[in-house]
Design a protein around this nucleic acid. Structure first.
Lengths: 149, 149
DNA sequence: TTAAGTGCAAAATCTTTGCAAATGT
DNA sequence: ACATTTGCAAAGATTTTGCACTTAA
């Protein structure tokens, strides 16, 4: 189980931004750090709490949507419909995401984990439905919350 | 492909409400009609447009959340994170939903379909994850939007 | 130097809360 | 008659927009 991060250390963030035609700013680096910091996807509200002292709320919105647009991060909605963000693993390009992995959402702590190593099932749809991608959310108890039962 | 409705005609709505300890009001009947009317789940904003003249926005919020709480409808988030609602098929009780079917979300018209007849795949999670339920969203083109390509 | 990015103010939405009036049983 | 439900007003939260100032390249 990973956070989907590309085994990339902090050093690589400026390159990541440049590759995507984005200027390297302290705010963007900070957001990248926070997103990769946790073992799970991070919600917009949580991000806001963490960086809110340093980064304007509006700027955060704009940074996150530009990251998503460029394929740097992907956006998952948790059980409450709250947007959460995780790094894209690979192959994600502008307006074309390949976040084809299962997400695990803990029903207790609401954490979102990207399960890159679990393979996607084959789904057969009824006639006249053309499948482009699958978004699978497995809901249950994460390791941490099981302990506390 | 169905809307998840229990083959129930309009006549049965009052019973459905009574069974769930809810009073039969014209507003609630109206919302039930609209939710079962379409072949797909309906979003809160769309519902609001349709019934907005007759039902207060706040009342709509309260009706939808009471329906969800009682297990009359279930809530799915579409690709934009917008709440959409569809009838529960069966076995849904207060605070315990069994909407264990795949949802198909059209990336063009954003419609959400409940695919009751598609069986759920088996997913094997990494150690220390306890699975409770699967929420699978298949994204692609629905029959209508394929025609218009 | 200059195009892109940021912060602040303000607008536009979306969602919740409190309470008096209306309604179903 | 009485508990629920509704509508309205208002508060609170979230998200977007416009614009002047700042910053990276």
């Amino acid at each position: 189980m990973t956070n989907g991060k590309k085994e990339q250390n902090t050093q690589e963030f400026p390159d990541l931004l440049r590759e995507n035609g984005l200027k390297v700013t302290s705010q963007r680096l900070r957001v990248l750090e926070e997103i990769t910091h946790k073992n799970a996807a991070i919600s917009q509200p949580d991000l806001e709490k963490i960086v809110g002292k340093d980064i304007d709320r509006v700027t955060l919105y704009r940074i996150l949507s530009s990251f998503e647009e460029k394929g740097i991060v992907h956006k998952i909605f948790d059980l409450n419909g709250t947007a959460t963000y995780a790094m894209c693993t690979s192959n994600c390009t502008e307006n074309h995401h390949h976040d084809q992995h299962i997400h695990f959402i803990c029903s207790v702590c609401n954490s979102v984990f990207c399960l890159d190593e679990v393979s996607l099932p084959k789904i057969t749809l009824p006639p006249h439905f053309a499948l482009h991608s699958l978004a699978i959310n497995a809901v249950g108890l994460c390791a941490n919350c099981q302990k506390e039962d």
